[in-house]
Structures are given as C-alpha cells and as structure tokens.
Amino acid sequence: MATYSTIQTQTVSADNGVDYAYRSVGSSTAALPLLLLQHFRGNLDNWDPALIDALAQERRVITFDNTGVGASSGRTPNTVAAMAADAIEFVDAMGLDKVDLLGFSLGSFVAQEIALHRPDLVNRIILASAAPQGATGIHGWHPDVIAAVGGQEPSPEGYMRVFFTSTPAGQEAGQAAAGRIFGGRTDGHDEPTTWQTRLAQYDAVTHWGIPDHARLQRLQGITQPVLVANGDSDPMIPPKYSHLLAGLLPDAQIKIYSDAAHGFLFQHHKEFAADVNTFLGRQ
C-alpha cells in the first residue's frame, strides 16, 4: 500500500469553482472515509505521515487544502463558517455521502461548523487542540504564540516551542516528528501557504474567539459522538477549552496527553492513532 510520503497529490474541481488539492491513502471499504482538517498555516505537507499511515491501516484517509491554501485555487476566506462551506464543497465534489471528521486546531473549528451546517454528512468527530466558539479568553492568541508561529516566514524554532514541550522528552519527540513531517517526502511537495492565507485564517481565529456565551449553546446541535483531545501543556489552545468543549457537547469523551503541547497528535502519534481507530470503530 502507498504511504502518505509517497502518495501523489490529486485535484478535484468543485461547483464553487475551486480546484482542491488532496491526497488519499488507505483503501478499506469496511469503514467510512476519514477527512482531515488542517491547522493554521498548514498544508498537505504539514501532516505527520506516521500518523496518517497508522490511521489508514483501517480506513481511507483524505487530507486536502481548503480554498486558497497551498495548491488549491481561490482566495482563503476569513471566517470559519466560510471555510466550513468550502470544505463541504470539497466533500460534495469527491462524491462522499458521509464521512468521519478529524479537525486539528483551526481545523477543529471548521469541523464543528460542518457538523452544525450539514449534520447528515458527519458520522463521528475527533476534535484535536480545540475550543468552542465564543469561549472567554481565546479572542486571539497569546503574544508569545503569535510571535512564534505568525510571522511573515515560518519559524522552525517557533514551531518547536508551540507544538512541543520544553522537556527533554518533548523536544526529542518534536525533533523526530519534524524529521518525519518535513523530511519524509522527497518530491511532489505542496505549495507553501501564502501571507494572504495566514492573515485570513487569523482573522477567522479571532472572530471565532469573540466572547459570546450564546454561541456556546450551538454545541447542543452536534449530536454525533465526539472525541476531544489535547496536550496537557498546549500554549496555543490550552486544555481547559477541551474540557469546556467536552462538557458542552451532548455526546463527548475527552483525553489529555501528558507532557505534550499543540502537536500532541504528532508526538504521541501511535497512541493517538490507536485511540482514534478505537473511537471510530465503536458503532
């Protein structure tokens, strides 16, 4: 079977006029496809191939660049709602009637919106490093975080500070994950994300974080089973928001990974993949 580091990027044209770049690995027909929604500034190349390959052992896993991101055409919108509408356009273009969702960071916001706007499309949901819309304290990231990952040019040092803890174990795991993510593919790389994408995505993040307790009530509309997960030391989206989210969702379970930050799912990729596969296998 092809691996995530060797699978070629494909393109599908949607009714909204966008040509979406995507990769699909795994071919099991025994389970629903798992659609992955990427983090702030991330493209197809920013997924950990070890995580994708572990998930793809039991199902088809699809990663894609949303509108204006990486090799996909169009202009990145500046609201989560618009990003969710564009993601639904991609799913429709792929001819998928129902999917499981795994949203990471900004992608977890998009996953929540997809589940609210097209509930019949979504079976189960994994929200990694997530926060609910309207929660107090997430109206923009801490200055240290945005300085680390929000500059004109991506910073490897900033990435390591935000995605992995400063402990020896955390830094060792971070170096290993960075080697897999940034060194695993030898050709067919995705296009880098642009400054326009970065600005639009951060606008979407800050809009999502405007304090509004009434917005929290919307979560009652997500009735699918949800797995909420985070690292215990995430500086970008602290785990208290995972607990808040899990407490507000009608059918949720939560797991917090130890000595881990924003990139817990890459640091603990074997454990996280096993947890996801177990969760998705419960019918």
Rank of each mutant, 00 (worst) to 15 (best):
T63S: 12
T136I: 12
P119R: 08
G140M: 12
D120V: 09
F40K: 06
G68N: 02
R60H: 09
D144A: 15
L121Q: 10
V122K: 02
G137K: 08
G68Q: 01
T136Q: 13
D53H: 04
R124A: 09
I62Y: 07
A71S: 11
A71P: 00
P49A: 10
G137V: 11
R41C: 12
D86I: 00
T76Y: 01
A147E: 12
A115V: 00
E113V: 00
L101I: 05
K98L: 11
T79Y: 09
L116D: 03
Q112P: 01
A128T: 09
L51F: 15
I62D: 07
D97P: 08
G74P: 04
L44T: 07
T79E: 09
D92E: 14
G95C: 13
A93F: 12
L44K: 11
A148D: 14
D97Q: 15
I52L: 14
E153S: 14
S72Y: 04
T79S: 14
M94L: 15
A128L: 06
Q112E: 10
G107F: 01
R75P: 00
A147R: 13
S108K: 01
L116S: 03
I126V: 15
L106E: 12
V99Q: 04
I125C: 07
L106Q: 15
F104P: 01
F90M: 09
L127C: 05
M94Q: 14
Q112C: 06
G150D: 08
Q152L: 14
M94K: 13
G68W: 01
G42E: 06
W141P: 00
E113C: 00
P77W: 02
I146N: 04
E89N: 14
V110R: 02
V145A: 14
E153W: 07
E113P: 00
D48R: 05
V122P: 02
I126Y: 13
A148L: 09
V61W: 08
A82K: 14
D86Y: 09
D100M: 05
A54C: 09
A93N: 08
V91I: 15
Q112G: 02
R118C: 08
S129R: 04
H142Y: 05
G74H: 04
G103V: 02
I62P: 01
A130S: 15
Q57T: 10
A54Y: 01
W47V: 00
G70P: 00
N46E: 12
L55C: 08
R118D: 09
F64W: 13
R41E: 02
T63Q: 11
N66L: 00
V149N: 07
H139N: 12
D53Y: 01
A135K: 04
E153A: 15
P49Y: 02
I88H: 14
A111Q: 03
S73C: 04
S129D: 12
Q57V: 06
A115L: 03
A82N: 10
D92H: 15
A54K: 08
E58Q: 15
V61A: 03
A130P: 04
A87C: 10
G151R: 11
K98N: 10
V145Y: 04
I126E: 04
Q112R: 06
S105H: 06
V91S: 09
Q57R: 15
V145G: 10
A56C: 11
G42T: 09
I126K: 07
L51R: 02
V80F: 07
V122F: 03
F40N: 03
L121H: 10
P154C: 10
W47Q: 02
A71N: 07
D120E: 13
F64S: 05
Q57A: 11
G150T: 10
D92T: 13
R118P: 00
L127I: 06
G68T: 01
S108C: 04
E153Q: 13
